[in-house]
Structures are given as structure tokens and as C-alpha cells.
């Protein structure tokens, strides 16, 4: 274990905070993407299509 000196607690909390926030941000982006993909799939399953998708 490396010695982070007398202010180790500040260094550790800085990195822990960044890791938690970045992880939460990645999860939020992925969860939002999945929710929207499900919503779009449900609409398309009802046979709804955009005019530009029409053959």
C-alpha cells in the first residue's frame, strides 16, 4: 500500500467521489438509453412508422 502522506484522506475522498459520480453518470446515460429504446420498440410494435420510413 503506497503512503499518501498526512493528507491521504483528502486524496482518497477526491478519487472516491469522482469514481462514484462517473459511475452514476454512466449508469444514468445507459438506463435512459434502455428506457427510450424500449419506448420506441413498443411504439414500432404497434405498427407505428415515421412517414420517412414508409416504403
Amino acid at each position: 500500500m503506497m503512503d499518501l502522506g498526512p493528507h491521504a484522506i483528502f486524496i482518497i475522498w477526491a478519487y472516491v467521489g469522482v469514481v462514484v459520480a462517473v459511475f452514476a453518470l454512466i449508469c444514468a446515460v445507459r438506463i435512459d438509453a434502455r428506457r427510450v429504446a424500449r419506448r420506441l420498440a413498443a411504439l414500432e410494435a404497434q405498427g407505428l412508422r415515421r412517414r420517412s420510413d414508409a416504403p
Partner: peptide, 12 residues
């Protein structure tokens, strides 16, 4: 990508 899909869903 998600926002583009969201707008497509809102359009539908």
C-alpha cells in the same frame, strides 16, 4: 443517440 431516439418516439 438516445435523444435522437426519444424525438423519434415523441414523433410517433
Amino acid at each position: 443517440h438516445t435523444e435522437i431516439r426519444r424525438r423519434r418516439a415523441m414523433g410517433l
